[in-house]
Write a protein that binds this DNA or RNA. Sequence first.
DNA 1: TATTTTCTGTCAAAACTATGACAGAAAGTC
DNA 2: GACTTTCTGTCATAGTTTTGACAGAAAATA
Lengths: 340, 340
Amino acid sequence: MSIDTSEIIGQSIVLEEVFKVLAKVAPTDTTVLISGESGTGKELLVRALHKNSHRWDKPLVPVNCGAIPKELLESELFGHEKGAFTHALRSRAGRFELAEGGTLFLDEIGELDMSLQVKILRFLQEKEFERVGGSKSIKSDVRVVAATNRNLEEEVRCGGFREDLFYRLNVIPIVLPPLRRRGDDILILAEHFLNKYNRRNNSLKLASEARKLLLNYSWPGNVRELENFMERMCILCDNNRITAQDLPEKVLLAGGIEPQLRPAHNDGFHWPGLKDMQEKGMDLKAFLDRIEDQLLLEALDSSDWVKNQAAEILGIKRTTLIEKLKKKDISPGSIINDDN
Amino acid sequence: MSIDTSEIIGQSIVLEEVFKVLAKVAPTDTTVLISGESGTGKELLVRALHKNSHRWDKPLVPVNCGAIPKELLESELFGHEKGAFTHALRSRAGRFELAEGGTLFLDEIGELDMSLQVKILRFLQEKEFERVGGSKSIKSDVRVVAATNRNLEEEVRCGGFREDLFYRLNVIPIVLPPLRRRGDDILILAEHFLNKYNRRNNSLKLASEARKLLLNYSWPGNVRELENFMERMCILCDNNRITAQDLPEKVLLAGGIEPQLRPAHNDGFHWPGLKDMQEKGMDLKAFLDRIEDQLLLEALDSSDWVKNQAAEILGIKRTTLIEKLKKKDISPGSIINDDN
DNA sequence: TATTTTCTGTCAAAACTATGACAGAAAGTC
DNA sequence: GACTTTCTGTCATAGTTTTGACAGAAAATA
């Protein structure tokens, strides 16, 4: 089954994988948990999911759990009966009821407080809930899709999120990669937005050094930041070629602190960024150390553990390598254990 | 006497022991303390206990002491009288009252704070309690079953849990073994869940190498995690045989198998490898240095060049950061010698 | 304005790292 | 086997990096 992804632009391998999973999952009623940094387009993904499910002609109701004040959220989700609290002048249906037959999208689900987590869990298990201040249970047929930009597993570990709810939600996990991992998608998107915002008839183009810089920047705000940025370019750029000069300092800084030795055709490689480091919960030293481990191991592997040669490959002195191995306690037996 | 354990699946020796104890204890009114990691199915065990007691036709009321905010817990357990506190618009019965004649299941009892521990103890001794803000004592016939995933004896030793309450609760201790100790139960359960979730008519089967891997993995989330995995398998698996390739990375790693490139299961981050290094024509030092540059710059950028904070983000000492910047000659104005 | 807090750079001591020199061990060659 | 070449680990030394202490600047707060 093929699936309509026309609203999501890009063609990176990672995205393709996402689409494959999406296609399998869409027709089912399973809960899906989408994680990805903000601005990566989780909303679009959910829309595609809904459109391709059997619920396509029923409502898709989004709730941003982080944006609604905690006191209101319960009533917003489940509705309330008249008199349930001070301002409850009349009964009101919640989003669960509005979504009847369709899909409920719980964005930023990591923000839910414990008491609501319990209630959502109850719904997932029993398919029923109560309005605030109500006593009768309401049965409901709603598919739940949740999204978060936090690391929920981490939250579970440190007690901020219920383990049982996590497992309920996480039946199918979909991880939306941040823009900096999507390789050439950056350029494809950049040009897409260029066309979108370019009102003047003259066609704007990206100079090749600008392309290089765009690729190197880490886009912490993801697609949103890129779109924003291209819109600005369209307005500010006088001539019809966007050059390195036109790019903001941030982008320049990330791009070229060290002049490259070669033109470096960039096939997918992206310098690891701060976000990557933080995602792994590491500090600078640990992170660099881990990368070093990787390189040492690969070098040793490719030289059949002949340290002399490995050192050569790495461009360090043999003795240096030996000391490093001693310190890191690396021996032919050690396997890289990849803990997230 | 035999006991209905149909909801609990497994046949490992350890479990059988548990059932034996369960059968003896169920018909009595003794308190029972169940310990076991979360996700091991404590709830199911309690349900079996209740169903096989003389209280089977009375309510089984669960309270997750860890999931209810401390301020609310007392009122939740014992109820409150009108006006007991700000939002107590009307009197309300607590779970103890709701459970009258039946069983009260106190989950995560280790989370109780001291004042509540006293009140529970009082109930266990006197079989009576007071509502919050109430003065009259309420007599009650309730069997208490408690559960915890902490080591309560440990908590007692270090003062986090009252010794007297512990002994009251711990009359009959039942220890639910974690999944990884239950040997072949893992496979029995796996297949059970496979059937449960398999909507398509084709029968899903576990390939033998997959079985081996499942047995090897440590299942920190226990039965819950296993169920979750199996549900996912049912949806994502194309063919009707679940092979090692289909299993998530975690499981493969535990079994010592190198995970293949399967982007769907991670967020696309790759540790920079030897190839990347060589492609850039750098040696180990230059490469790591370049990565460090990137991280320093991003940290500075995200802290608006407040070095104090940047250092914090990076997990290094401020002075260290300053020295690094000096050596690398990085400053806010360092816009680059372009590589053209 | 006065006061407190946060931030800054410098410097010398302490901790850590890289490397050349040495002394053998393995492997390869004749 | 005799000889050469490549590899190995250890260690002291020179070189780097990290860090705590200090003293003053800048920013926030009252």
